[in-house]
């Protein structure tokens, strides 16, 4: 039992982090907090990957130093790519939130849903300028 908890503590940490992030993504009403949750969620998976690469007493995998026992470099490389992906997702999400704030004047999901339901289907304005004309936007 102790072995299960202490010996695999990295896994427990990433599971805990993952659940915290997952909870925030689902339960939080604030759009920015959801994105923070998403980042925690993704980072938990990254930490999990990195911890699987660990080799006890291993060194850095450098060829010319003739390292015999070295940590697995591949998960690190994969996670570098995954971090780039996660940064892009965060950037797109934040850009969307800026647009949502401009269109609705709030970033609380409840209020946005209320506003979306209140407005019946108005005639679609076919225009070539900015598509959003909302009275509620706080200037």
């Amino acid at each position: 039992m102790i072995e299960l908890i202490i010996g695999k503590y990295t896994y427990w940490i990433s599971i805990t982090l993952m659940m915290i992030g997952f909870y925030a993504m689902i339960a939080k009403g604030n759009l920015i907090k959801k994105i923070i949750g998403m980042n925690i969620f993704q980072t938990a998976v990254f930490l999990f990957y990195i911890s699987t690469a660990m080799v006890k007493d291993g060194t850095a995998p450098i060829l010319w130093q003739k390292a015999n026992l070295y940590v697995n470099p591949l998960p690190h490389v994969l996670i570098l790519t995954a971090i780039v992906v996660s940064v892009s997702v965060t950037a797109v999400a934040l850009a969307l939130i800026i647009r949502i704030y401009k269109a609705y004047g709030t970033i609380e999901e409840e209020q946005i849903l209320k506003m979306a339901n209140e407005t019946p289907n108005p005639k679609l304005v076919v225009n070539k300028g900015e598509p959003f004309q909302t009275p509620n936007t706080a200037k």
Binding site: M38, F41, V45, T52, V89, R99, I100, L124, P131, T134
Partner: peptide, 28 residues
């Protein structure tokens, strides 16, 4: 054209990221 598109996109982003992260974990 309508502002609802933004929320539709945001919700898809959240769910799509959960999906992609699950796939990443499976690959791991």
């Amino acid at each position: 054209r309508k502002r609802n598109a933004l929320m539709a996109s945001y919700n898809y982003l959240i769910l799509g990221t959960i999906a992609a992260t699950f796939i990443l974990l499976g690959i791991g």
